[in-house]
Design a protein around this nucleic acid. Structure first.
Lengths: 198, 198
DNA sequence: GTCCATTTCTAACGTTGTTAGATTTTCTAA
DNA sequence: TTAGAAAATCTAACAACGTTAGAAATGGAC
């Protein structure tokens, strides 16, 4: 019965369109406009169909968060691939992280919000963390310096990037300034680790 | 007519009780439980009286944010006053900042949420920023090192503290670990600035 | 062409922030 | 002390939210 597979394909298609529509509303109008009825209207359905594809609004938002981290990861990977120099690579990824937050402020907000559970966020963020770990290992090998282990160095950098991205994405300081501050902060930390090794 | 002043006093009293009740609900049960009706019930009134003292829920939340920054400031000032050594003082304030976030997670969340406008947050946070600037100036004088000016050093530290506090307060990493990471990050940055000066 | 399963919609429930209007309380003044 | 003004408070309602139950429509299988 080939029709059942087609039905499944159609179902998945609607699911994807819901996610797409939700992402578009979130990015263009913010979390306040992201209502179930609005999303349903945008995909030309009524509200209850959303619940046939997602357990509830929170589950849908969780998927947006996963999508957001995938975008962030792709951004970071692209930037990293385009810069051969180990030091500059880290700095550019740092600036890219902050830029991502200010280019997708509403998405970044839910990515770090409390609607999503901490463990889910960790899972979604893991690839990005792994990339950061790699970049850090390469830097470490290049300079013969070993920064604090047990993931501490990586978590420090993650924290710094997130902190300065936060300052940037809700206009506490400007966008470009936050990017520069992130680069400076990271450069200073790397220099600090080098100074420790001496 | 002394009664009118008493009336004003009573009005202010109710206002304060509303703020107190709201703060208690927020801290003990989180932002999800913070509804206008709930607050009104807790002060033994009905919902509309809240609107006689605040333009809306957002205005009330804004006051909670101000209150939160005052608490944070008091905490930081107390810690700073208790530590004569310039370097240790900065590290202890850093750890204190992160601890504050994990001891008041829901309050810290709204303090950095999007319900409050960026300019209002800046105003509320200004005293804490000023304290940070002072601590940094003292450190700078002690070591004969001038970190980046134009408030950049201060904003970097602020960002770092906020970032690691965020990692800590929603359990991305544990509480004590986030405190240690903040101390390490700050120590490394200070070392980095010293290394630059040499 | 009939029946069954799936999909979709209509209608509703409870809760939210918020406002209008009635009601009660409190103060002032004769 | 009491009549009337002013303030405070409550009741009732509105629109919008997330969510669910049950009716209506749709589409494939014999």
């Amino acid at each position: 019965m080939p029709s059942s597979t087609r039905r499944a394909r159609e179902r998945a298609g609607i699911r994807d369109r819901i996610i797409e529509a939700a992402l578009h509303v979130l990015e263009s109008e913010g979390a306040g406009a992201l209502t179930v009825r609005r999303i349903a209207t945008d995909v030309e359905y009524t509200a209850p169909v959303v619940y046939q594809h997602f357990a509830g609004k929170d589950a849908l938002v969780a998927e947006l968060v996963v999508h957001g981290y995938a975008l962030l990861m792709a951004d970071a990977a692209r930037i990293a691939a385009g810069e051969p120099d180990v030091d500059r690579r880290l700095l550019r990824v740092a600036a890219g992280y902050v830029r991502f937050a200010s280019e997708h402020p509403h998405l970044y907000e839910v990515m770090n919000g409390t609607t999503i559970a901490a463990s889910n966020r960790r899972d979604a963020a893991q690839p990005t963390i792994d990339l950061l770990t790699e970049l850090l290992a390469a830097w470490s090998a290049e300079h013969g310096v070993t920064p604090p282990g047990d993931n501490e160095a990586c978590e420090i950098i993650w924290g710094v990037l997130h902190g300065l991205a936060s300052l940037g994405y809700h206009d506490t300081v400007g966008n470009e300034r936050a990017q520069r501050l992130a680069e400076q902060a990271l450069a200073t930390i790397l220099r600090g680790w080098q100074a420790t090794a001496r």
